[in-house]
Write a protein that binds this DNA or RNA. Structure first.
Lengths: 190, 190
DNA sequence: CTCGCATACTCAACTTGTTGACTAGGTCGA
DNA sequence: TCGACCTAGTCAACAAGTTGAGTATGCGAG
């Protein structure tokens, strides 16, 4: 039920096609939620039959037609109800952490390589987030922006995504150091 | 397929019952993975038929019998293969973030209450993690521990869970400040 | 002039994760 | 001695998320 609400929150910015939403859920909304296009299209259909969104087909020349979705009054109410509900805490659920947990009796070199790769990925993501942030701020400094913007939600969630990735980078660096030092010790001690 | 590997990683510490694993996945392994007992029992059955683990039934007086699971050689190989594989990055996927994204047009007071609640929850979790950490270190300081411990995986993943929750606390505090300042402004400006 | 990528989707099958209820004895505090 | 909680699970049904393939057109680079 949460993807539904994430989609509705995304539609607060105005109408959007499934395709655009898919891109958003792979880029900007992705600071805290991700999903595949398939999941989106399926959910959009359901939401339409449930009356939470309406679609308007736009005929395009030289491009496939697209359906632009927007929130209905019912959808808006639903979303408000959701904001008022309780929200369960989440865990990280990261495969890389499972690999690190098992690294001592697994392929340590491969795990180190995975950590390095992840670190780079996270650094790239931070770059993207920073660009997005600059765009959101639109030249204002943070205080000004927060005081005058119509919506602060997107900015706050972006901050969360940003700090998550920064944290990832720090943890990757720390873990690499530990595993490398350990490798050196194990190589020389026996 | 990742729960499988998480379970195998948990069994590296020695044999364990489904029930104990369930508690672990709600407490210690929970620094980065969670699951319900039902999911575990189902997965344990499958893993047994796949030959990754073996069960040994222990008859108990005054208690229901239990089945203690341990890794087989095949399971160990599988796990090593997993550590050598590539791991997809994850996103946070937190309902609270969806609520914050939509807060501007939803029930701001309720969202603030949710953030406060989450902050407390995260602080409590940090306490638990710190106790676990002290237990893992067993009186040694971090450097000593990392140099001498048989396994560092559990410690590294614990660190990740810890920093995730610390980050949550910081973000909650920041978001509350922003939303409160904004509430004050909106109350007085119109 | 072909290859690959971008737009804009659809369909089917599968795996994971969630929810709620049920069994059944033991222990512990009020 | 009653009710609540702990141990140690099982079963069923459903919701959510993943994977892979297919359709059709347009555009630009090599």
């Amino acid at each position: 039920m949460s993807l539904r609400n994430a989609v509705m929150a995304a539609l607060l910015d105005g109408e959007s096609s499934g395709y655009d939403l898919a891109k958003a859920f792979d880029a900007s909304v992705a600071n805290f939620w991700i999903c595949t296009p398939q999941q989106l299209y399926r959910e959009l259909d359901r939401m339409e039959t449930d009356g939470l969104i309406t679609a308007r087909t736009v005929e395009q020349e030289r491009r496939p037609n697209k359906r632009l979705f927007s929130l209905t009054a019912t959808g808006r109410e639903e979303l408000t109800r959701f904001t008022a509900a309780q929200h369960k805490p989440t865990a990280i659920r990261d495969e890389l952490l499972v690999a690190v947990l098992a690294a001592d009796s697994g392929d340590v070199e491969a795990v180190k390589a995975s950590i390095r790769e992840r670190k780079q990925w996270a650094e790239a993501k931070i770059q993207r987030y920073e660009r997005l942030r600059a765009k959101l701020l639109g030249g204002l400094d943070e205080e000004e922006f927060l005081a005058t913007a119509e919506r602060v939600g997107p900015y706050l969630t972006l901050l969360r995504g940003l700090s998550f990735e920064r944290d990832n980078v720090r943890w990757c660096a720390r873990s690499l150091t530990v595993l490398e030092r350990r490798g050196a010790r194990l190589d020389t001690s026996p």
